[in-house]
Design a protein around this nucleic acid. Structure first.
Lengths: 256, 256
DNA sequence: TAAATAGTGTCTCTTAGACATTATGGT
DNA sequence: ACCATAATGTCTAAGAGACACTATTTA
């Protein structure tokens, strides 16, 4: 019935995996200023960080950054360590995505891969850019990565899964904050949501998020020490009210 | 930078995991009829299936059913196979939950465990009950499993995670259907939701799910071949309209 | 006729959705 | 004066939430 029961504690008896790698889908949103006469909102694009492989297997292909798990750490720690090595940042949103274990997925042997996804603010990646060899580590748009690139292993599938996941999470949690500064305007927030979920359309977005009972707790107006409201005119002539996220995340339900 | 790059294809060079088990949290909802004079709704309880271990480690403790992954199958297949062995059913809701890799979690060695959860309709487990040794395989309420039982490995943590997950999914997807017959009354649906999420309270539940534009597509009234509406008086004097789930699952969002 | 569930009426206040309008400040 | 973004006004229809009320059977 239960094969756990029948398993010996003699660990050498059966074929065991050849490794447990952690692969990380590192997402960021890049901003590029529009070349207009007046101040305007930047273009934003959802990017994923890839590495060009130097060795067999899949030498020359692009792949997710990653590395092998060790006995002395959890796979989450493996992922965090790899992320640190790759981007130099420690305190970013890092979440487990899925396991990939299709037979033959890695020609090196029986590799059970654990995919994570990280959300990194563009500002952290800027320093890194310079120090790295531009040939080997690069940001691609998600569309590009999924449709135009030769990817190693089953990394296309992993990126596709991660993309689906981040799109869903964007609408159901407050991960938008990972892509925004501490204080932000509502246009910026709206733009970030749309960058990840292009289908997202909300007329009256400002009003809904600020003044409906059920969700106005998500964000709050930013004030300075003396209680004065803070404004930004970075993207517009008319200064826009700045907001910050609270810790509140509303529960969602299809029945309510 | 990328330790995948530095990994040899000589698979024997590093310490590798001693096994990749799949553990399954099998949930079901049991019904027990109330002993009242009149017809009434049954008590329902969310249960989890556990197995009493016979061997070291954790001999005598209760544990999740599970087994070791093989090189020739995905871990999802491992889980499905174990589920089949355990409950005798194949086509049930089975989903990946999380990976558990804390060092030392299994005294037998470096075991990276993959937890799944399955939602099984009570009717499938009924046959099994008889044929199994009641001492070794048993259904427990989730509360009991979490608070009163001595559990093997990190299975308490896994069950707690699975419980959180199923509660969230219950409100955001239509997994309620896994615990219901093909045709059901709205009281049954409401009761199933409340069994998994006790905090769930909706006055006007009937009206909301049947006649609000945005979510009435979730379920539809059940009709017979000639278009007559179907009713059930299993739980009440007054016959109740029967419904079925459609394939439609509304999108949820905290911003909409 | 009472028990137990099924389902509707009604009222108020809030929200959705669509669109028009006004506000601000720099070039 | 005009541009680009910020924000409010206004109107209608729909929905939320509370609670009282009616309906249907059968023991």
């Amino acid at each position: 019935m239960d094969s756990t029961e029948n398993q010996p504690y003699n660990v050498g008896k059966y074929r065991t995996p050849d490794g447990a790698p952690a692969d990380i889908v590192i997402f960021t949103i890049t901003r590029t200023e529009k070349q207009t006469a007046k101040k305007s909102l930047p273009y934003r694009e959802l990017m994923v960080l890839l590495i060009r492989r130097k060795r067999w297997p899949f030498a020359g292909s692009w792949a997710l950054p990653g590395g092998f798990g060790k006995e002395s750490e959890t796979l989450f720690e493996t992922a965090r360590r790899e992320l640190m090595e790759e981007t130099g940042v420690a305190d970013v949103h890092l979440d487990y995505l899925n396991v990939y274990s299709k037979p033959g997925r890695d020609p090196r042997g029986w590799m059970i891969s654990h995919a994570f996804f990280a959300l990194v603010n563009e500002k952290w990646l800027e320093k890194r850019k310079a120090q790295d060899d531009a040939e080997d580590v690069k940001l691609f748009t998600v569309t590009e990565a999924l449709n135009e690139l030769e990817l190693a292993f089953d990394h296309r599938e992993i990126i596709a899964d991660a993309y689906r996941n981040i799109q869903q999470q964007m609408l159901v949690t407050t991960i938008a904050k990972e892509f925004l500064p501490e204080l932000f305007t509502l246009s910026e927030l709206y733009q970030v949501i749309q960058t990840v979920v292009p289908e997202f359309k909300e007329t009256n977005f400002i009003r809904k998020i600020t003044s409906t009972q059920s969700r106005k707790g998500i964000i709050q107006v930013a004030c300075d020490a003396s209680g004065e409201k803070l404004y930004s005119n970075q993207y517009s002539q008319r200064p826009a009210q700045l907001y910050r996220f609270t810790d509140y995340v509303p529960d969602v339900s299809i029945y309510t």
